[in-house]
């Protein structure tokens, strides 16, 4: 699907994002529209990975861009826009999850799994199309839903955005060592959440 705004000319060269951020920071809405166009797909993808629901992901994406627009004059280093915006986005996503009260602790020994709790599982990205793989994919989706917002966020940053730990630490505003530890903990929590379904 091609969005008309997304199809705008790419950001490059002298008209690069740094220049656009500078113009947007000074109140140029057209420049900000172009930043939105360039970043919308990846922003939505990350939001969706964290919150799960498509409508919620759209709300999160919209709120994140709006928040960024409001706060842009306070961004001291425009070169840091990407990490700065990612942090706004993940914070909006975490807030969205908390607002809707979908957080469940994976430390609960027994988690009841309802049949209607299943999410459609798109096998497009799966290498193995066997029934077991589909079932495991389903179980993984449910397990992800049971992670805390912070755990989902760090796994999404790592697996969807494929960001190195140093970048994740910048987005989350924590030291690299903390980011590594949280990533490890989130992975372990995911495994525990899977095991509760066995």
């Amino acid at each position: 699907m091609t969005h008309p705004v997304v199809a705008d000319r790419p950001i490059s060269g002298a008209d690069g994002e740094l220049a656009l951020v500078g113009r947007a920071r000074s109140g140029d809405r057209h420049a900000f529209d172009r930043i939105v166009a360039a970043r919308l797909p990846s922003a939505y993808r990350l939001a969706r990975a964290i919150v799960g629901d498509a409508r919620d992901a759209e709300d999160v994406t919209q709120e994140a861009f709006l928040s960024a627009w409001r706060s842009l004059p306070r961004l001291r280093e425009p070169a840091r826009f990407e990490a700065w915006f990612a942090r706004i986005l993940v914070n909006e996503a975490r807030m969205s999850i908390r607002r809707r009260g979908r957080v469940m602790s994976v430390s609960i020994d027994t988690i009841a799994v309802r049949d209607d709790d299943r999410r459609p599982w798109d096998v497009t990205g799966a290498a193995d199309s066997s029934i077991d793989a589909i079932a495991q994919g389903d179980a993984l989706q449910r397990a992800i839903d049971r992670l805390t917002p912070d755990q989902r966020t760090i796994l999404a940053l790592h697996h969807v955005e494929e960001r190195p730990v140093a970048e994740i630490s910048a987005v989350l505003g924590v030291p690299v060592g903390t980011a590594k530890w949280r990533l490890h903990e989130a992975r372990a929590a995911l495994v525990r959440a899977m095991e509760t379904q066995r």
């Binding site: 699907m1 969005h3 008309p4 705004v5 997304v6 529209d33 939105v36 166009a37 919308l40 797909p41 939505y44 993808r45 990350l46 969706r48 990975a49 799960g52 498509a54 992901a57 759209e58 994406t61 919209q62 999410r119 599982w121 798109d122 096998v123 497009t124 990205g125 799966a126 290498a127 994919g137 993984l140 989706q141 992800i144 796994l155 999404a156 697996h159 969807v160």
Partner: peptide
């Protein structure tokens, strides 16, 4: 794969 499947799809065409 689970996260990519979870985040697949495009936003509404009028989101921008």
């Amino acid at each position: 794969a689970a996260f990519l499947a979870r985040s697949s799809g495009a936003p509404a065409v009028d989101l921008a």
